[in-house]
């Protein structure tokens, strides 16, 4: 009985792994430069992952990226200057955002 249960659990796990291995989204974080509500585009300046006390969100890299947020789930409305973290799919040259998190406004570290 126990063995059958363990086996079926393992089977289920393998199936799930195979099914879910397909999708992979990129994540990028940076300062919001512009949030265009009509075109549903967000422009950010990307930050790197060198976190420190002086730069808790990483250091600016100077690279600007534009994300299509038409289908994205957006948390607290982004405003220029906010630090955003986006999960997105790279579709050719377009970056299609899935979720947009307002890191600085939401501030999860605060209880």
């Amino acid at each position: 009985m126990k063995r059958i249960m363990a086996q079926s659990l393992a089977m289920l796990a393998v199936i799930l792994l195979v099914v879910t291995a397909a999708s992979a989204a990129e994540v990028s974080q940076g300062k919001c430069l512009q949030y265009d509500k009509t075109a549903m585009k967000i422009t950010i300046e990307e930050y790197d992952i060198q976190f420190s006390k002086e730069a808790p969100y990483g250091r600016p890299t100077g690279v600007q990226s534009v994300f299509d947020v038409a289908k994205a789930q957006i948390g607290i409305t982004p405003q220029p200057g906010d630090i955003l973290r986006l999960a997105y799919d790279q579709n050719g040259a377009d970056k299609i955002a899935i979720k947009v998190m307002n890191v600085s406004k939401q501030d999860l570290k605060k209880k």
């Binding site: 879910t20 994540v27 607290i76 947009v100």
Partner: peptide, 30 residues
């Protein structure tokens, strides 16, 4: 609950953790 959207930072983790954080971002049901 306010309208909170959380994106896991997959740039900072590797391996299994990366797999699950990624899943969290893309397919919450799974």
């Amino acid at each position: 609950a306010t309208n909170i959207v959380v994106v896991a930072d997959t740039r900072r983790v590797t391996g299994v953790m990366k797999y699950f954080s990624n899943l969290y971002n893309t397919d919450i049901l799974m």
